[in-house]
Nucleic acid binder design. Structure first.
Length: 489
RNA sequence: GGGCCGCUAGCUCAACUGGCAGAGCAGCUGACUCUUAAUCAGCCGGUUGGAGGUUCGAGUCCUCCGCGGCUCACCA
């Protein structure tokens, strides 16, 4: 134990010796810090004391200014900061203040006053220890700066950095605003399995675990899609789920292996209807929570004002890449053209993957303002419905904001025969070595064979949306406890 | 996985070309009854991420390892 901790332990013992529990089970609290501030600010000009009112407040000691026979403390509670003034001639047992350290939680009984400088303050008559902290909090002025510490020991980051606290408050508000938005439009929130026999609905490697009771492997879900569609088959016309999904992939500024996804499905809607719902949802939520629609993300100003731009993938490649996809309609010709242009291509890429490579290179980084990129090659979209005018394309969009994918939607494939054929094509890719290809899900096909009405669906990573709304460059700054490598030895 | 950068007191940071490891905050002692990054005086606090090596001498140079950041690759 280090010296600083030993000192604090000794202070706790001293309290116990005096018959005071340094960790009492209960306390009296009548007011929050913000309540006291309001009381004092309501005082008429010239008056410095709120007559006849006694308050009990509680919070963490975040500053201590000892003037000798008077000491100022700053207490932080869930509503904010409030100053406490302890004076030798108005506080019982003034000497005991030396037992209070920064980081301790204390309760204070006293009177709301205004100091000479106008600061709302509680002038204390009594104080009680509520929780003795055994470590010093991070440095009071600079806060906690070390990136690794801030992520590994988030409680210290939250304790020390107001901005971090606010960011995670915003996160909660965004999540609840999304729920309100959808609930108000008749969507039902449902919960589907995290542990699945096979993880489907997206192209990603799953985490695998083992269920002892059944003596079977299970996979953590990589998307919400296939179970939510089963809900639509069952007759739920508007469903959504917001929950954690898990992808066994690398870490990075935009990637965390567990992240929060929302997916929604609306029967009798198509991908156009869903695009309107989504742009309304995001701009409404931004306004409700943050009161604005303009954000600075990675040095670029982004406006979430509606309407958002819509452009087909073909048009976007023409506009940003001067690439006329009609002229390169086979994998071989497209590959030759892209290689001629100097792109580095995966050797096994099929037509869809090649289009995707071209998009990543020419188009996506340019889509800073919210943009729906529409009509994808069928090869990339095994769960989306084909366009009737061009069966090589599907009714699908991805929405890009700030240069990265923020969401994905289809008119859902509800033809069980086509769905089976698509799964079988995926199975061929898998056999050929694509370990992220979709698996044939017989129960899902059985569900579709019972009939899923025409349906539009949408999925979005909540964390990435929050990166934009809170103007953070790294997904780790919007996840409370991001994955980090463990420290051993 | 590759490249680059970083890791010094509980926290925030210094330390020229290899030459006694420092400051502020926090802590301890003292002064101060309206301060608010309080102030003032004094004191305590170090396996310089870890292990080796070069050297009379290593925070500094070399090798390996750990963790992190950025980036490339990978990842719709």
């Amino acid at each position: 134990m280090d010296e600083l901790m030993a000192q604090r332990v000794a202070k706790a013992e001293e309290l116990r010796a005096a018959g005071i529990d340094p960790y009492p089970p209960r306390l009296t609290r009548t007011h929050m810090a913000a309540d006291v501030t309001l009381l004092v600010e309501a005082l008429p000009e010239g008056e410095s004391e709120v007559e006849g009112i006694e308050v009990d407040i509680a919070g963490r000691v975040v500053a201590k200014r000892d003037m000798g026979k008077a000491t100022f403390l700053d207490l932080l509670d869930g509503s904010g900061r409030i100053q406490v003034l302890m004076r030798q001639n108005s506080l019982a047992n003034y000497d005991s203040l030396r037992l209070i350290d920064l980081g301790d939680f204390i309760g204070v009984n006293g009177t709301p006053i205004r100091t000479r400088t106008g600061q709302p303050t509680v002038q204390a008559a009594h104080w009680t220890m509520l929780t003795k902290a055994l470590h010093a909090p991070p440095e009071k002025y600079h806060g906690l700066a070390d990136v690794e510490l801030r992520q590994r020991k988030r409680y210290l980051d939250l304790m020390a950095n107001e901005e971090t606290r606010q960011r995670f408050i915003v996160r909660s508000k965004v999540v609840s605003a999304i729920r309100r938005f959808l609930d108000a439009r008749g969507f039902l929130e449902v919960e589907t399995p995290v542990l699945q026999e096979e993880a489907g609905g997206a192209a990603a490697r799953p985490f695998t675990t083992y269920y002892n009771a059944l003596e079977e492997e299970r996979h953590l879900r990589i998307s919400l899609e296939l179970y939510l569609k089963r809900m639509v088959v069952g007759g739920f016309e508007r469903v959504y789920e917001m929950g954690r999904i898990f992808r066994n992939e690398g870490l990075g500024a935009k990637y965390n292996p567990e992240f929060t996804m929302i997916e929604l499905y609306q029967a009798y809607a198509d991908y156009h209807d869903v695009s309107m719902l989504v742009e309304e949802m995001i701009s409404t939520v931004a306004h409700e929570v943050l009161g604005k629609s303009r954000f600075t993300f990675r040095g670029q100003e982004i406006s979430l004002e509606r309407p958002w731009r819509r452009i087909t993938l073909h048009d976007a490649l023409r506009e940003y890449g001067a690439l006329e996809l009609e002229e390169f309609s086979t994998a071989d010709t497209l590959r030759a053209e892209l290689e001629r242009r100097g792109l580095d291509l995966p050797p096994t890429a099929g037509y869809g993957k090649l289009v995707d490579e071209a998009m990543s290179h020419y188009v996506e980084p340019r889509l800073v303002q919210p943009t729906f990129l529409m009509d994808y090659p069928v090869e990339l979209s095994p769960l989306a419905k084909r366009r009737t005018d061009n069966p090589g394309l599907v009714e699908r969009w991805e929405v890009f904001i700030g240069g990265f994918e923020a969401g994905n939607a289809y008119t859902e494939l509800n033809d069980p025969v086509d769905q089976r054929a698509r799964f079988e094509e995926q199975a061929r890719l898998k056999a050929a070595g694509d370990d992220e290809a979709e698996l044939v899900d017989e129960d899902f096909l059985f569900a579709l064979e019972h009939g899923m009405p025409p349906t539009g669906g949408f999925g979005m990573g909540i964390d990435r949306l929050l990166m934009i709304l809170t103007e953070q460059d790294s997904i780790r700054d919007v996840i409370l406890f991001p994955q980090l490598k463990s420290v051993k030895g």
